[in-house]
Design a protein around this nucleic acid. Structure first.
Lengths: 344, 344
DNA sequence: TTGTAGGCGTTATCAC
DNA sequence: GTGATAACGCCTACAA
């Protein structure tokens, strides 16, 4: 591949490279005819500006790094689409890396990104991440970073999160309103903020409705389907069957559903179920799973816009935290059938 | 962010930039002590080489573009993980773009990639793509491209595909072996090679087992769950109920399943079902869906390796087509229950 | 309005 | 073994 440069154009037209350069940039300071001449010739020769040269000069890579735990599940894929939507328009390129939920890989990604001179970073922490020193240092150096979804409260940067507390509260309240009382919460890794918030929401709902609950009704399960299966299996072994479960995400809810069905329990009549994230799977399982929908795409756009603001404004931008709202998608898994319907 | 350059190091040590540069590159041609001195100082000053300057000099961006129809469903996400696995190790960065199954957007992505001077391109065509002129031209110019999964036969480049014919044949044969005779095929957009191959496989299986079938047992449905729903709904309206359906992917199979169940049909006893791609959803629906598993991750790695070979070898590399194998994951949706079991 | 020249950070080719 | 210096492709003072 031989690329045409402004030198080639300059030579072809017997003018200086400066003039050619001006034709593309300076809207003034160049004679209209020259400008048009250059532009025509450039098109004819198939010239395309070399972005790398420009990047070297402007000291920016126009690359933004995105580090997410994974993008197999649609949650992060959808966020990424939102991110790209905004950044591509501004000629940024998005480099996506997965931490695979590993703190080690996350750090490695971080370093790779740093070395590759990305202009900014959008990060959702792995479930393992506890040590945030490297991140903190980067932030302290003034490197533009926005955290989203899986954040760490103590880091002084802009953040975009979901109102996990509120929607965990609503989700639990929904179960209460359906008449369920002995409600369990399958929680994820409790050192994550968003998991803590969901637990808080669960507790608040129970307290608000004056429903007593035991500590062990909140079970730390992990975030995979198997985790939900295992937790449910353990409860069944103990013969400690909940009336309903509010699970911290869809996979664990579906895992629980699987095991419950296997053991002959009817959902929603014996056990009600609510998940979180409203994945594609929630629509497909039977009964369809009630779940909290999160504005993934919009979250992506918001994160990107926040970073963009930091990147473009010359003065340091105050970091702020944007809290996004969702909605509860109510499906069969949490709506007790009336006796009438049952008889059908 | 102020970056340290080799100039800074040179100045600090009162030596020339050439020597500093050599310390990082030439393993010889520099005194050991000087080398160590430079390395130590560099570390101390927090020096990191500027990849952009290097790229400018070597005339390569170390960026690889990947264009896929979407990455919400896990198929392409998994392929991308394989791609990254290989390319990141070789210091390439991967730029991912989605065509959203739109030929227009695909072309736009292609142009963006071209302008951003990626060193190579990995492409899976959108379902709409018919006009391949732009791609053809790029290939003719010698631009390194590898196609995968959704390919176009006529383009003279390396390709990585799945053995759709064989596994469509096996999938259909599996249904035949289970005793199903009136088997329908829900096909996707028939101008895609992989869809054609799956249709061929279906036909071959039927012919091999001397099962007569009508043309309208092959239905072009699209690739979404709704497409499967609509096609099934239409069949039910016509009261033309298949004994089994081999669907071109999991979503359409699951769409059909949904509608069949709604109308009171038992799967697998009234209607057998087989999908394609073995998505997460296949495990979760009820009954679990028999589906053809494709080696997505390995496909990604293979595609990337093929491109890498082109990128590194100096002589033009012969383009070849690699055909990958999978397996049929047999689940409940296609295994007729014996009367004994039915009585339970 | 146009051209000359210097520089972005690196590597490579010469001399010395 | 080391140091000037010229690239890579582009932009931008400054001079003409």
């Amino acid at each position: 591949m031989q690329y045409i440069t402004i030198k080639d154009i300059a030579r072809a037209l017997d003018i200086s490279v400066a003039t050619v350069s001006r034709a593309f940039n300076d809207r003034y300071g160049i004679k209209k005819e020259t400008r048009e001449l250059v532009l025509r010739k450039a098109k004819e020769m198939g010239y395309r500006p070399n972005p790398i040269a420009r990047k070297l000069l402007q000291k920016q890579s126009l690359n933004i790094g995105v580090i997410v735990p994974e993008f197999i599940n649609s949650f992060f894929s959808e966020v990424i689409i939102g991110i790209q939507e905004i950044l591509c328009k501004k000629d940024y390129q998005v480099i996506i890396m997965q931490s695979n939920e590993s703190a080690y890989l996350e750090l490695k990604n971080l370093i790779t990104m740093e070395n590759s001179m990305v202009d900014g970073l959008l990060i959702s922490l792995s479930k393992e991440t506890k040590n945030i020193e490297a991140l903190k240092q980067l932030i302290d150096e003034g490197f533009p970073i926005v955290l989203f979804n899986r954040i760490n409260d103590t880091l002084p940067v802009s953040k975009v999160i979901f109102n996990d507390y509120k929607w965990a509260l609503f989700a639990t309240e929904h179960l209460i309103e359906q008449g369920y009382r002995k409600i369990f919460h399958f929680a994820g890794p409790t050192h994550l903020n968003l998991i803590k918030d969901r637990i808080r929401g669960f507790k608040r709902a129970m307290e608000k409705h004056r429903i007593p609950y035991e500590k062990d009704q909140i079970i730390e399960t992990g975030i995979l389907m198997e985790d939900g299966e295992n937790a449910m299996e353990a409860l069944i072994q103990k013969n400690d069957i909940p009336e309903a479960i509010f699970a911290t995400n869809d996979p664990t809810a579906i895992g629980a559903m699987k095991v419950l069905k296997k053991h002959g329990y009817n959902i929603p009549n014996d056990v009600g179920l609510v998940g979180f994230s409203n994945s594609k799977m929630a629509e497909i399982v039977e009964p369809a799973l009630t779940s909290v929908e999160q504005p993934t795409y919009k979250m992506g756009k918001t994160v990107a816009e926040l970073l963009l603001k930091q990147l473009t404004s010359k003065e340091p931008v105050d970091s702020k935290t944007i809290v996004m709202d969702g909605r509860l998608v109510i499906r069969d898994s949490s709506i007790k059938k009336l006796p009438l319907e049952l008889n059908k």
